[in-house]
Design a binder for these strands. Structure first.
Lengths: 348, 348
DNA sequence: ACGTTTAGTCGAAACGCTTCGATAAAGATT
DNA sequence: AATCTTTATCGAAGCGTTTCGACTAAACGT
């Protein structure tokens, strides 16, 4: 493997001149630049990333702190990873994956102190997040996909849950639904201060209040069975419900089954939709699920781009962005035509 | 950030001695070792990964060549990534993601020549694979998750498709099915020499032959609509079919719908199963899908572990491993009770 | 008692780059 | 003509490690 010294020799210049030519750090005459690049081509020279990083104290490597949510990893997380990797590459950076098993923030500190990465993108942030606190404490550069409670001076991108919930409810209201259930993440996640769960919770209450609708909220773990139970509970307590918004699409199969068991049809007798779920999951269901699609690719991309801007000093003040989800109407939602006579329906 | 020189000074030894103590490269007396580690602790010293890599010519970083299959990324790929990352970390390596956009093998060459990574794990390998050919040509260390046609001297882990297909068919046969459809990946993927598609294709033919069953094969793109069409085509041409094995679970919702449109029930009138699909996807369906679950976590883990063994010279000859999928019976398969009288059934 | 290992340590030379200060030549400014 | 800039280049000193060869003193074999 040729080194910069080989190139310098062949182009008849000093090593430093080659470096300047490559990085554009200092002016180089057109003529010598040509000679240098010619020499590089002929030798098939590639700058050594480690040496470069060591000398410049900038590795051009960033880490994605890849934590699994309590409900497990899904397509959404996958898309963060791929879009983050693509964005990193386009900006001339490498992306390393720091896996979730890093529950101990001390381990995160050790990793950052290895000098391997210039900054980290944190995902699955909790309202009070150990990793974030750690990074802040040691003033290590980072951005978040998601956000914690105190976001002073931290750049982040997140889903605009407030708007998303509002639009979802509005959509159902326009279809004529007035009794709407909201199936949140699990109680455990809510109690742990998981941002999406907390924000969506408050927001849903607000929205039904201002829109003068009847809303019922329930927590639910991310399994079909939990969905089945939740749905039956909800309908026992509130038989007038005609629509449900779920935070987690993994509950939906159970709900669909519960609906079928009542002899109801979707969407004629009941409307179902999920917020922040991927098209991928929505299309796996019969009927395909109406969703608020999250802008996953943008989130991943922006997470790393904000970080890189910060690293390259193009951004002094933190940028904070909230991205809306996009309503995609599929076949699980519509005006409700169920005859709301009584509970007999359940027994037919 | 303290350096090794600071540690050496504080422990009253030479820099090289500290290095030997850390790496165990040469014997160090118990007494000085203690002093050195004490000094490291007091200073909070962390070896610099870049300097280490530069000096030792081993970065302890490996890359996962993260290519998207034509059908798009799914949970399976996600699990490769996470398990690979975990395995790397446990072995003291970092994992960088080299994204799929690297279609040009030249770009792969450039990346490898940067000296950043010691080796790469390639996934989504085609029978004749450009990336693999490239790596081989420049003798860059790598392993595969999946396998190409000529696997001489290459370490890999792959799913044992032959066995998987056989077990799937056997399972259906035991339920009494004798007319079985096989829904492969798309024609395009097959033509491109995508290993799983090719191997499964031949194997299915063999198996039905030896078991004296009637088997029909069809290619199908990875969408519900394509599944719907494929199913209808198949049943028009072969009304006696009572079961179907799909290579791709993304076709299943369409198939389920087509079945429902005939007024049939699953599994009473028709049995459905998918090979190499994640539990995650299977449980999103109603009824939950019987599958042959792939050992994704093991594949990811072994992919990196084989690579690391190779890098550390613990393996001179290539290890090649085929892992079986595990049959998970859910609710989409069972003995067929449909009255196979005629096509009237369609019109009921 | 005398070469020969062996354990433990040191100093210096890499590793392949970036960056700083210096320098010479050319251009601009008085 | 003398001085100040600017442009283009060079050489050398890092960056923080590993690794090689050398050295000392103790242990060993005969």
């Amino acid at each position: 493997m040729p080194t910069i010294a080989d190139v310098a020799k062949r182009a008849n210049v000093a090593v430093s001149t080659v470096s300047y030519a490559i990085n554009g750090t200092r002016p180089i005459s057109e003529e010598t630049r040509q000679r240098i690049f010619a020499a590089m081509d002929e030798l098939g020279y590639r700058p050594n990333a480690l040496a470069r990083g060591l000398a410049s104290k900038r590795s051009r490597i960033i880490a994605l702190l890849f934590a699994a949510p309590e409900r497990g990893l899904g397509i959404t997380e996958l898309e963060f990873v791929t879009s983050a990797a693509d964005a990193a590459k386009e900006n001339g950076y490498h992306l390393v994956l720091w896996s979730s098993e890093m529950n101990d923030p001390e381990e995160l500190r050790r990793f950052t102190q290895q000098g391997l990465v210039d900054g980290v993108v944190v995902m699955e942030v909790h309202l009070d997040d150990n990793h974030v606190n750690m990074l802040r404490e040691i003033s290590f550069p980072f951005t978040m996909i998601g956000r914690c409670a105190d976001t002073d001076d931290i750049s982040y991108v997140d889903i605009h849950f407030e708007q998303t919930i509002k639009e979802a409810v509005q959509y159902l209201a326009e279809l004529g639904h007035t009794n709407i259930a909201f199936l949140n993440h699990s109680q455990a996640e809510f109690d742990a201060g998981y941002g999406p769960a907390v924000r969506a919770h408050t927001r849903f209450a607000q929205v039904v209040e201002t829109m003068e609708l009847t809303g019922v909220t329930r927590f639910c773990r991310a399994t079909p069975l939990a969905g089945w139970e939740a749905f039956n509970d909800l309908l026992t307590a509130h038989p007038d419900l005609t629509a449900l918004v779920a935070m987690n699409d993994r509950t939906i199969p159970g709900i669909m089954q519960a609906i079928a068991e009542r002899g109801w049809r979707i969407p004629d007798d009941f409307s179902l939709m999920s917020v922040v779920s991927s098209a991928r999951a929505a299309e796996m269901m019969v009927p395909p699920l109406t969703t608020m699609d999250p802008p996953t690719a943008e989130l991943g991309r922006l997470g790393v781009e904000l970080l890189i801007q910060q690293l390259e000093g193009q951004a002094q003040n933190a940028s904070q962005m909230l991205l809306p989800c996009r309503l995609v109407v599929r076949d699980s939602s519509g005006p409700c035509r169920r005859i709301q006579s009584s509970k007999q329906v359940e027994d037919q």
